[in-house]
């Protein structure tokens, strides 16, 4: 495979699975920014090893093996001071990785439904999610800005997550029909 064709294929394969790969990494890393970093390292690793990839096998599974290694490396690199990276034990991380494999289709479906469920949130809630996940506003600052107690803010985030969870689950139940 020449380099350009290879790049073409890699781009296509990686594009198709990158969101799923991010979810996989996130399931072990638990911090969005860290997860993005790991995903980026994974992309680099995948690209350098792409010639070894067997097109007959699923790219996603192949990519997850690399992602798992990158998660490990990231945990080693980050040291104890890291945010959430080392809060859980290696054992728990491995258990999560293996659960992900068996549970994958459901997680994919949930992800699709989430996009729909987000549209059902009130604009206020969407705004809060934007602050929380996009702007990364510090939550105590955000609480101040909104003129509410921090505790209330966490409560609201919890309620939004809960609402999303219920929406996903009820939509999934509807999809069964």
């Amino acid at each position: 495979m020449n380099k350009q064709a290879s790049q073409h294929d890699f781009t296509r394969e990686f594009d198709a699975c990158q969101d799923a790969l991010l979810r996989y990494v996130m399931s072990m890393v638990h911090d969005y920014d860290d997860a993005r970093d790991v995903l980026q390292e994974t992309a680099a690793a995948l690209w350098t090893k792409f010639e070894q990839y067997d097109p007959a096998s699923p790219f996603g599974a192949w990519a997850r093996r690399f992602a798992f290694l990158e998660v490990q490396k990231h945990r080693e690199r980050s040291g104890r001071k890291s945010r959430k990276l080392l809060l859980l034990s290696d054992e728990a991380i491995e258990a999560l990785a293996s659960e992900f494999e068996t549970h994958q289709e459901v997680l994919e479906q949930r992800s699709r439904l989430l996009e729909y469920c987000l549209t059902l949130l009130s604009s206020r809630d969407r705004e809060l999610l934007k602050h929380r996940y996009w702007d990364k506003t510090n939550l105590s600052e955000l609480a101040q800005q909104l003129g509410i107690a921090e505790r209330t803010l966490y409560q609201r985030l919890y309620r939004i997550r809960k609402q999303i969870k219920l929406c996903i689950e009820s939509s999934a139940a509807r999809e069964e029909f």
Binding site: R23, S27, A35, L96, Y133, R161
Partner: peptide, 9 residues
């Protein structure tokens, strides 16, 4: 929860 967090991000 974590995969949802990834998607929310």
């Amino acid at each position: 929860c974590m995969t949802t967090e990834a998607d929310l991000g």
